[in-house]
Design a protein around this nucleic acid. Structure first.
Length: 464
DNA sequence: TCTGGGGTCCTAGGACCC
DNA sequence: TCTGGGGTCCTAGGACCC
């Protein structure tokens, strides 16, 4: 999908179409998740600090992400991909590999191209958004092709042309070659893919290590035989928070670690897992980051066990000077059903057994859904800024559907328009406690489409 | 207004075992 | 005959991806 989060917001808010839109964290330490193509023209891009983005594009619209909404759209797209082949490997909400050979739909370039163009049309028709397609004989090349195809395009790499196509390009186009590897190679005089091939495998292994060197050498020559894998088991679950202001108070730090442990276990259980290794992550005031971990005798999903392990790990960390981020994770995952015989035995009192929660999740999945959509009830709700986050949908008893343009000083500004509107809507300001104004579910981008309120988002993910 | 959050994979050293 | 070789697990850190 092209500039997915930003494009979804533009589709749902007619006044933003054709305008620079930036989606990301709006707090003092936020970063850009997605910039619309209009915003990219100002130099704004993913992972950029929000403050920098605001300096570059002061007149852009700045919105917080609405994951439940994006997830619903993503589900529609993935469903279309599933019709092409049983082998679909999602990489994220907005990207996936499809093995067309396994689907039996395309046996030559012309056939593949036709399938790709049909898919793009279907994506547009069902979601109202554009996607780009890369077609090639391997995952690496398909990925490169799809990057070239953006936005709103299709690129096919004809078999036999791979090496000539890659040779003059920067090594950075090869997936897995990031800033650090790029620097390493540049210091060795290697900047293009052709130079990677010239260097030879031994030299690359010397520079980058066994695994990375060997795989880069293969990729540079256009070789990539990694299969498309439909279902991959999760290996870890983690949650982390960056605080607007560094934490100094040891008791507060401890409290936050406890909260994170609870959230982590909720997600762990929701995914149907237990785990053996507990990881505490601490980012200090100076951005230095460390992890401490502890492996239990057996897997657990007990909140108390995880919390106490995280607290023990915190005791190992010096936090003088302040802490900007804390995180808690669990790895070494086991299927829930295998039970956590060892760890559980130590702390059985007081906490509910795992099996009950697993059944509850399964039972909730079919049709029983809360009356209010997850997105409308953020955890620890109550502050005005959360209730009226920029970009979120609202409904006014008299004026109808709209979205929050901004809020502060006890007021919230709303633009009244819907995805189907042809002209930008009117703007009105209310007090934050106006009884006629309520948070609302997203509206479908396409008539009859899904919205994220009743879509594919499982109950267990409501925390986002 | 300088740096999110959720992941995956790899490396390297030490403990431990046969 | 002062010191082999291989394997696994654990811990910590780093690169990378979206």
């Amino acid at each position: 999908m092209d500039a997915f989060f930003a494009a979804a917001e533009q589709a749902s808010k007619p006044s933003l179409r054709g305008k620079p839109v930036v989606v990301g964290g709006l707090g003092p330490r936020g970063v850009v998740a997605t910039a619309s193509y209009e915003a990219r023209r100002f130099g704004v891009h993913s992972a950029m600090p929000m403050g920098q983005a605001r300096r570059l594009a002061p007149n852009a619209a700045y919105l917080v992400p609405r994951f439940a909404f994006y997830r619903a759209i993503s589900g529609q797209v993935m469903e279309l991909l599933g019709r092409l082949s049983p082998l679909v490997e999602p990489l994220s909400l907005d990207e996936a590999f499809v093995d067309l050979e396994a689907g039996g739909l395309a046996d030559d370039s012309a056939g593949a191209r036709a399938v790709g163009e049909r898919l793009r049309a279907e994506i547009l028709a069902t979601t109202g958004l554009t996607g780009s397609v890369g077609l090639a004989g391997s995952k690496m090349l398909a990925k490169i092709a799809s990057e070239e195809a953006k936005p709103d395009g299709l690129v096919l790499i004809e078999p036999g042309t791979e090496r000539a196509l890659l040779a003059p390009r920067s090594v950075r186009i090869i997936p897995g070659v990031g800033p650090a590897t790029g620097d390493h190679l540049r210091r060795a005089g290697i900047t293009t893919v052709a130079e990677v091939v010239e260097a030879g495998e031994d030299e690359l292994v010397r520079i980058l290590g066994r695994s990375h060197g060997a795989s880069l050498y293969r990729m540079a020559r256009g070789h990539d035989d990694r299969p498309v894998v439909a279902e991959r088991d999760a290996k870890s679950v983690s949650v982390e928070d960056t605080f607007d202001i560094d934490l100094h108070d040891r008791l507060r730090i401890r409290l936050e670690v406890e909260r994170l442990a609870e959230r982590c276990v909720t997600r762990l259980r929701g995914s149907g897992h237990s785990g053996r290794t507990i990881v505490l992550k601490v980012r200090r005031y100076d951005f230095s980051t460390l992890t401490r971990s502890e492996t239990l005798r057996g897997p657990t999903d007990d909140p108390l066990v995880v919390r106490e392990a995280a607290e023990r790990l915190l005791e190992l960390v010096d936090t003088t000077g302040g802490v900007r981020l804390l995180g808690v994770g669990v790895s070494g995952l086991a299927d829930y059903t295998q039970e956590d015989l060892f760890a559980q035995a130590g702390a059985e009192a007081g906490t509910s057994a795992g099996g009950e929660a697993a059944e509850a999740v399964v039972a909730e999945e079919p049709a029983e859904r809360p009356a209010v959509a997850p997105a409308a009830v953020p955890p620890a709700a109550g502050t005005a800024s959360r209730r009226w986050a920029p970009g979120h949908d609202v409904r006014h008893a008299v004026l109808g559907a709209g979205w929050v343009q901004g809020s502060g000083l006890g007021r919230v500004t709303v633009r009244f328009e819907e995805p189907g509107s042809t002209a930008p809507g009117r703007v009105r300001t209310f007090t934050v406690d106006d009884p006629e104004l309520e948070p609302a579910d997203p509206l479908p981008l396409v008539p009859g489409g899904v919205t994220g309120a009743e879509g594919a988002a499982p109950v267990v993910r409501a925390g986002e």
